[in-house]
Design a protein around this nucleic acid. Structure first.
Lengths: 372, 372
DNA sequence: CTGAAAGCGCTTACAG
DNA sequence: CTGAAAGCGCTTACAG
C-alpha cells in the first residue's frame, strides 16, 4: 500500500507530495482536497473519488506542522514524568537510572491508547526531580502541543495556574487548582483499609512507612492515612528522614540497608509508598536474612503486574492504572475544546489486594480475622 | 519567571504572544527577533537587549508548528514500540496489558535524554503486534516528526526501505537495510557465552528456549545461538510452538503452565528470551513447587534493574540499554542532517552476568568449573 | 458544491 | 547589521 503509493509516484524526489500536487493530479482546487480529506461540507462523489485516487497514487499525507499552524490544533498531547537524576555511568549497580517507573509508564500507555482514538499523539518528556529549569521546559513544551498532562508534583499550584493560562493542564496524582484538573486514585480509602488490615487482622503493633518522593502528594496522602489508622489503633508508627524513599526499588533497598546498619530495630510491618519500593525492600530484607512476612510484613501500592510475580506475592492496593491515564486524556481532550469541566478532582476507586507478603496465607481471599 | 512574564503581559488574553508582539514591544522587525532568538548573524548588542527584554516581559515562546513549517525541521523524533493487544478489561488477571515492557521503556529513556540535549522531543506511539494498519500509522507519523526510531520488527525490510524514502529511520533490535540503520546488542556473543556456561560449567544436558515474539529478530538470533551451543555440546534443546512466549512475564507463566499441564517433563535449564519472561517463568515454577535453580535453572536477557531484585537473583546477559537508546537517537540525528552513515548495523557489546538462578552460588563471581 | 484568497506564525534569502 | 517580503503547507471564511 505504501509500496504502491510511493513507487507509483512520478515524483521520486525526496520531498513528499503536498496538497498542491494532489490538487493538480485530481484537477481540483486545494480547498477541495482539504475538504474531502477532512470530511467537511460533503463534496460531490466524483470530486471525492478523484481526490482519493490522487492521494493514493501519490501517497499523500498532510504535513502535521502546516495543519497545526492553520487549524490551530496540533493533535499532540504533552506528557511529563519525573525521574531521578541520570548519572552518566560510573555509578554503583543500584542507581535508579536503570529502573523505569512502572506506574507512570503504564499510565502513559493508557493515555496513549485513549489519545490514539482521537487521532492525538503523545509527546513525552521526563524531568529530573531536582531540575532547576522545570518551568522553562514546560513553557517550551506548551508550544508543541495542545495540552499537558503532568505526573506528580512537577510544579507548585501557583505556577500550575500560571502555566494553565497558556494551555489546558491535567495533573496526575497531584492536587487540583482553580485552573487545572487532577486525576488520582483514592489514596485515603485504599491506604486506610490496608493499614486497618495490618493493625486489626494481623495485630501488628509497629508499622514503618517508607515514603516516596518527599513532596509527592500521593506519598503524603498515604502517609497521613497510615498515621491516622496507627493512631486510632494505639500502635506505633516509624517514619521520617530515615524512611525517605523515592518510588524506586533502589530507594527501598537503600532505606532498609540504612536502617539495619544504623542498628535500628525494624517494625513488624513496613508499608511502602508503592510496589516498586516494596520490591527493593523485600530484596534488602532477604539479603539480611529477614524473612517476609514471618519476621517483617511488607506491602505496596499500585498493584503493578510484577506484584503478583514476587515471592511472597505482594499485598497491595490496586489502582486502575491504565484507566487513570485514559481518564486524564479524555478530560484534557474535552478541556481543549470546551474549557474547564465542573469537577476539578477526579478520584478513581482503589481496592485492597491481599496476597502473602502481609502475612495472609497463600491463595487466601479472606484473611484470618483476629480480635477487632 | 513564568510568573513575572505572564503576569506582566499587557495582553491577558488567552492567545499567546507572537513574534509580532515581541517585535512591536522591542521596536524592531520580526526578522531581528527571530535572529536574536536563534543566535544567527549576531545582531547588535542593543538589539539583543531590547528583544530579550521584550521576550521576557511577554513570556514569548515561539510556536512549534510555525517554526517547523518554516524551518522544515520539527525537532521531534518519532518512537514506536510494539505491545500486545489491549483488551478492554473483563480479562483475566495475567493479561499483558497491565505489564509494561521494561526493555523498550528504558531504551526510550535513553533516547529521550539524548534527544533533549539536541532540543528534540520524543513522539511516542505503540502498535499492537497484530495491528493491521501499521504501515498507515507509520506513514502518518512520518509527517509529525523529522525521523523515526522503530523498535523490534515493526515492518518487513522492504516496507522499511519504502518508508525510509519519506524520513530517516533507525531501527532497534532489527536488521539493517540499504536505507535504514539498526542498533542492537550482541545477541550472538552474549547468548553463546550464557549457553556455554550452562552446558559446560553447570553440565546441564537439556535446555529449553522460551522465545519472545515469534518474528522478533532478537529472539530468533538468541535461539540460534543457543541451538548452536547445545548442538556443539551434544545436549538436547527443547523449543518450538509450546515454547512460544511474547517477552512479557505473563507469556512466560503461560508457557510453563502449558508445559506442566500437558505432562511434558521440564528441561534442566530454561533460557528465556528476556528477563521479564524469566520473571514469569520463575513465578510459575514456584507455584508448581519446582525450585529454581535446584530443580530447574532459569536465565534471562537484558539485565533490567529488576533482575537483581528477584530471589534467586537472575543470571542474565547485560545489554547497555540506555546507551542503545542514546546511540539510536544520535545516529538518527546525524542522518537528519547528513544522510546515511557508512555503517548500517551498530552492535553494542553484551556481557554475561552470573547470579543465582543458573545454579551459581550467591555472590559468586566465578562459577564452579566442571569438567569441560 | 467549488475555487480564489487570506492567514496561521515563523525563518530566511534578498536588498540596502 | 537590519527590514520588507516571500514562502513553508495547510484550513477556512468568503463569494459565486
Amino acid at each position: 500500500m505504501i509500496g504502491a503509493a510511493v513507487a507509483d509516484s512520478r515524483e521520486m524526489s525526496h520531498t513528499p507530495p503536498t496538497i498542491y500536487d494532489v490538487a493538480r493530479a485530481a484537477e481540483v482546487s486545494i480547498a477541495s482536497v482539504s475538504r474531502v480529506l477532512n470530511g467537511s461540507r460533503n463534496p460531490r462523489q466524483e470530486t471525492k473519488d478523484r481526490v482519493l485516487q490522487a492521494v493514493a497514487e501519490l501517497g499523500f499525507v498532510p504535513d502535521g506542522a502546516a495543519r497545526a499552524l492553520s487549524a490551530r490544533l496540533k493533535e499532540v498531547v504533552g506528557v511529563v514524568i519525573r525521574r531521578v537524576r541520570w548519572v552518566p555511568a560510573t555509578e554503583g549497580n543500584f542507581a535508579e537510572e536503570d529502573e523505569s517507573l512502572q506506574f507512570p509508564d503504564v499510565i502513559n500507555r493508557g493515555i496513549e491508547i485513549a489519545a490514539q482514538q482521537q487521532g492525538f499523539n503523545l509527546l513525552l518528556s521526563s524531568v529530573d526531580v531536582d531540575a532547576h529549569d522545570v518551568r522553562a521546559r514546560l513553557l517550551a513544551l506548551t508550544r508543541k502541543c495542545d495540552g499537558l498532562i503532568l505526573h506528580d508534583r512537577l510544579l507548585e499550584p501557583e505556577e500550575l495556574e500560571l502555566l494553565a493560562r497558556r494551555v489546558p493542564i491535567v495533573t496526575l496524582a497531584n492536587v487540583s487548582t482553580q485552573a487545572t484538573v487532577n486525576v488520582q486514585g483514592d489514596n485515603e480509602a485504599g491506604m486506610r483499609e490496608l493499614a486497618r488490615h495490618l493493625l486489626r487482622d494481623h495485630g501488628y503493633r509497629t508499622i514503618g512507612y517508607l515514603a516516596g518522593l518527599a513532596d509527592s502528594p500521593d506519598s503524603m496522602a498515604r502517609q497521613q492515612a497510615v498515621a491516622a489508622e496507627v493512631d486510632a489503633a494505639g500502635a506505633t508508627l516509624q517514619s521520617g528522614p530515615q524512611w525517605q524513599g523515592n518510588y524506586y526499588a533502589s530507594g527501598g533497598t537503600r532505606v532498609i540497608e540504612g536502617l539495619i546498619s544504623s542498628g535500628a530495630s525494624l517494625p513488624r510491618a513496613i508499608i511502602c509508598a508503592n510496589d516498586q519500593t516494596a520490591l527493593g525492600v523485600m530484596y534488602a530484607l532477604g539479603q539480611r536474612g529477614v524473612e517476609v512476612p514471618r519476621d517483617v510484613a511488607v506491602t505496596g501500592f499500585d498493584d503493578i503486574a510484577m506484584a503478583r510475580h514476587l515471592r511472597p506475592q505482594l499485598t497491595t492496593v490496586r489502582q486502575p492504572i491504565q484507566e487513570m491515564g485514559a481518564t486524564a486524556f479524555e478530560l484534557l481532550h474535552s478541556m481543549i475544546s470546551n474549557g474547564l469541566p465542573a469537577e476539578h478532582n477526579i478520584v478513581l476507586p482503589t481496592r485492597l489486594i491481599l496476597r502473602e507478603s502481609c502475612g495472609c496465607p497463600p491463595e487466601s481471599t479472606l484473611p484470618a480475622r483476629r480480635a477487632g
